[in-house]
Simulated scan of single mutants.
Amino acid sequence: MRFIPQLALLATSFFIISCSPKPEMSKIEGFAQGTTYNLTFELPADSNLPVEKIETAISEELARMDKVLSNYRDDSVIEQFNAQKTTEAQTVDAELVELVEIARTVHRASNGCYDLTIKPLFDLWGFKNDVFTPPSEDALGVALASIGLDNLETVNTTQLRKQLPNLRIDVSSIGQGYAVERMVKILEQFGVQNYLVEIGGELKIQGKKTDGEAWRIALEKPLPNERKMHKIVSFDSGEPMSLISSGTYRHFFDDNGKRYSHILDARSGKPVEHNTVSVTILHSDATLGDAWSTAFSCLGSREGLKVANAQNLAVLFIDQEGDQLIETESDALKTMSGISFKNP
């Protein structure tokens, strides 16, 4: 399964910090959504369940999601909806309607910076084929007139209506977080309580490792020419928590002495110009965390901090000023207990 990136965000790399593997830990890994996925978990002590049964359930769920949410295949539910050039109500999968509504809450709270319909702008700037092509103001105006999540109406739990016939939606900015939650649900249905589930660097944990130690995750330093650890996040309490990170420091274009980010602001249709190079959010729901990570990368630390505090969200912003990395924590992150950020 592959979701084509709508804002060209590159999730910050994560490294699971652990001792040598314990025999009690089970592992499942594979390829989905254009990236890898990894599950590390402890089966219940009284369970004789073969790991292969869980692996099959995971594969079947990813394949099912692929048929509903993937933009790369013409027969998916989302692409069948996109292909219909009509303003009549269309029946779709309830799962798609649910994701649209989750995204709508983030769209409104981010003052429209986050938007599921932005792909035409992404293509206009040449990001689709990795060929940077700044558009004219006229072309930009035409593209802006063809997007906007407010032009998508939720009729009921299984129907959506376009107000613009050519409107298209892309859930790549929320899809990986949602897939994490779906895989977590499968593990929990099999009685698993201690786990780390990760797709493309977006992850959720619960409980502890088999040796009783906390899960620890390393965040990469947000610099384009370095692959070093910047922070180590320790999930000391073991409470369910997702960690999602997005960054601008690897995907950009330099043109005539100016650097352009791959992140587009849906309000202006142009690449963002703030100095925020990395955003990390801790959230109990990986789906919301995924959407908010994208939104805060669009907003940047100055505007994003106000939104994060208003929404009581635990967010770490990192700005680059010259050779310096400046960290800014939201109020919720400052007061969060059970999770600690440490220097390597």
Rank of each mutant, 00 (worst) to 15 (best):
E95F: 13
E303A: 13
D319I: 00
T328H: 06
D236F: 11
S234L: 03
G30S: 00
R108K: 10
L316G: 04
A314L: 12
Y178R: 01
A214H: 12
F31V: 10
S136D: 06
T154M: 03
G34R: 12
S246G: 11
S110T: 01
Q176I: 09
T40R: 14
G269W: 05
L116S: 13
K204E: 00
R302D: 14
L140Y: 08
E79A: 04
P120E: 02
S13K: 07
I169S: 07
T157M: 12
L203I: 07
Y72E: 14
L116K: 13
F132E: 00
E60N: 12
P344W: 00
H274Y: 01
N71T: 07
V97R: 04
V68Q: 03
M241S: 04
S13P: 09
E137Q: 14
D170I: 02
N38G: 10
P5I: 14
T87A: 05
I217N: 00
G34C: 15
Q206V: 09
K228N: 09
F235S: 03
F122M: 02
V307H: 15
S26F: 09
F31C: 09
A310C: 10
I281L: 02
R108Q: 09
H262A: 06
T154E: 04
L9V: 08
K306C: 08
G191M: 06
S330N: 06
D74E: 08
A295R: 03
L62E: 13
E213M: 11
E181C: 10
E61P: 13
A139F: 15
I199L: 14
L299G: 02
S242H: 05
G175L: 08
S136M: 06
A310G: 10
S337T: 15
T40P: 11
G207D: 07
E88R: 08
Y178L: 00
T105M: 00
F41C: 02
C298P: 12
G238H: 06
H251M: 15
K258A: 10
A314H: 09
S13Q: 10
L62T: 12
L62Q: 12
V142F: 12
L288Q: 05
A83S: 11
